[in-house]
Amino acid sequence: MIAALTRLGQSVLDPLARLGRANLFFLRLLGALSFLLQRPGLLVKQLHTVGVLSLPIILVSGLFVGMVLGLQGYANLVDFGATSSLGTVVALSLIRELGPVLTALLYAGRAGSALTAGIGLMKATEQLASMQMMAVDPFQRVLAPRFLAGFIAVPLLTGIFTAVGILGGYLVAVVQLGVDGGAFWAQMQAKVHFFTDVVNGVVFKSLAFGVAANWIALFEGYEAQPTSEGISLATTRTVVSTSLAVLGLDFLLTALMFGVW
């Protein structure tokens, strides 16, 4: 009886404590960022790992998502004779939702899981502990560069994804299906507003997703049980929690930005 109650209490207290640790972890991470002014080379290396190496998947997925949007939009709009607004449909869906969200999800799978596994392995092989022995702060040396690199990379990847997606939509709509190219771009420019759509959608959303994705990935790695099962569990949790966090955050941000009260 007492044991059952204890378990019940633990199942509430453990996630709470974990949340608290996650926030403290985030604060320490922010505090360690200034170290990068002294060692910008660390940042460049991480930017290569999380950014440049994520480019292929982002480019290919962006192109295909845009092409699918072009096909689907055409198939539905052609009934109303409104194919000239295909540009608007493709651009708005990519800029407002699909670009930031899909980039963040792909980033979690491609880079977030690798971050978690890398940090977890460093912990398992006691590299982090030995750094501390040598009075090197792993937050400054290992975690902060990864976090900042991810924070910079996600918005850039989102921009690339969205731009390539619109290009894909253009290829299908104008080159393949024969929609008028002038109308495609003109309608798009008339309906896509810079501040409400591009800044809110691509920039703010991706910044928020970048913080969430990298924070979760690094925290899961840092908290991982230093065993092979622990690391694989942490990697899975990174992908799952990042996906949920990104989709939940997306709803929240969409309600704030585009919601009509």
Binding site: G159, V192, F194
Partner: peptide
């Protein structure tokens, strides 16, 4: 990579939006 990302953002700003 950084140049490409910024170029994409500029493209979105100039070519796609108003």
């Amino acid at each position: 990579f950084v140049v490409l990302g910024l170029a994409a953002l500029f493209l979105l700003a100039l070519k796609v939006s108003d």
